[in-house]
C-alpha cells in the first residue's frame, strides 16, 4: 500500500513540482552571507485560510544584503472569490488594470522563484497557510522551504528585559522601530520589500552580538 501510494504520487505530480522538490535533494547549509533569502507577502480576500483566496504575491530575493529589483516577483492572481470590504486594505479591484494570471500559473512562477531557499515573511504562519491551501487545491504537497518569521525573530532579538512583555509586533510597528521607509504598505511587493529590510536590520543587530548563526535564525 505504501509502495503503491508512493508510485502513484510519483506519477501524478507535474514536472514543475518535481523540479521544485529537486531543490531539496542534497541541500547543504551555506554560510549566511552566501545564502539566498526570499522575502514574500500575499494580499488576500480575507483572513480565513480555507475560504479566502490569494489576490497577489510579491517577493524579493537577496544575497548578502543586496536586493536586486529586476529579480523581484510580482504576481496578480485571477480569483472568483471577491470581497468588497477588503479592497480598502489592499486596493486590488476585481477588474484592475493589471496583467493577472491563473492560480496554477501563479504557483508555477512562485515555486520557480523561491526554489529551495529560505523564506521570510511577517507573521509567516498566515502566508504559509494561504500558499499551502492554494497548492492543495491543485493536488500538490505543502511548501518544503524553511521559514523565518520576522515578528518572532524581532522579539528574540530584544534585550532580555523587554522580552517578557510580549506584544504582537506588527509590520508597521517594526518598520517604525527599525526606521524602514514605509512605502507601498499593503501591496504584496511593497510589504515584501519592507519585510526584507526589517529582516536585514534585525540581522545587523544580531551580528553585533555574535548571534548570527543558523541555529539562532531558524530557532533550531
Amino acid at each position: 500500500m505504501k509502495l503503491f501510494s508512493w508510485f502513484k504520487k510519483k506519477e501524478t505530480y507535474p514536472d514543475f513540482w518535481e523540479a521544485y522538490l529537486g531543490y531539496f535533494k542534497n541541500k547543504k547549509e551555506q554560510p549566511v552571507p552566501d545564502t539566498r533569502f526570499v522575502a514574500f507577502d500575499t494580499e488576500t480576500t480575507g483572513f480565513n485560510i480555507k475560504e479566502d483566496r490569494v489576490l497577489s504575491i510579491g517577493a524579493v530575493s537577496f544575497i548578502d544584503k543586496k536586493i536586486s529589483i529586476n529579480e523581484s516577483l510580482e504576481l496578480y492572481v485571477k480569483q472568483d472569490v471577491f470581497k468588497p470590504e477588503t479592497v480598502e486594505i489592499h486596493g486590488l479591484m476585481r477588474s484592475d488594470n493589471v496583467d493577472k494570471v491563473s492560480e496554477l500559473e501563479a504557483i508555477k512562477a512562485f515555486l520557480k522563484y523561491i526554489k529551495g531557499d529560505i523564506l521570510i515573511a511577517h507573521h509567516a504562519g498566515f502566508d504559509k497557510g494561504m500558499i499551502n491551501e492554494m497548492l492543495q487545491r491543485h493536488g500538490l504537497g505543502k511548501l518544503k522551504n524553511q521559514f523565518i518569521d520576522t515578528g518572532v525573530l524581532y522579539k528574540r532579538s530584544l534585550h532580555i528585559i523587554y522580552q517578557e512583555r510580549a506584544k504582537p509586533y506588527s509590520l508597521d510597528f517594526l518598520g517604525k522601530e527599525l526606521n524602514v521607509p514605509m512605502v507601498d504598505r499593503h501591496t504584496a511587493t511593497g510589504d515584501a520589500l519592507i519585510t526584507a529590510l526589517v529582516f536585514l536590520k534585525i540581522l545587523g543587530r544580531l551580528d553585533k552580538r555574535k548571534h548570527l548563526n543558523w541555529g539562532y535564525l531558524l530557532n533550531k
Partner: peptide, 12 residues
C-alpha cells in the same frame, strides 16, 4: 510586467 518596487525607487 508591473514592478512596484522599481516605481518607488523611481519616485525617490
Amino acid at each position: 510586467m508591473k514592478n512596484s518596487i522599481a516605481e518607488r525607487v523611481n519616485d525617490f
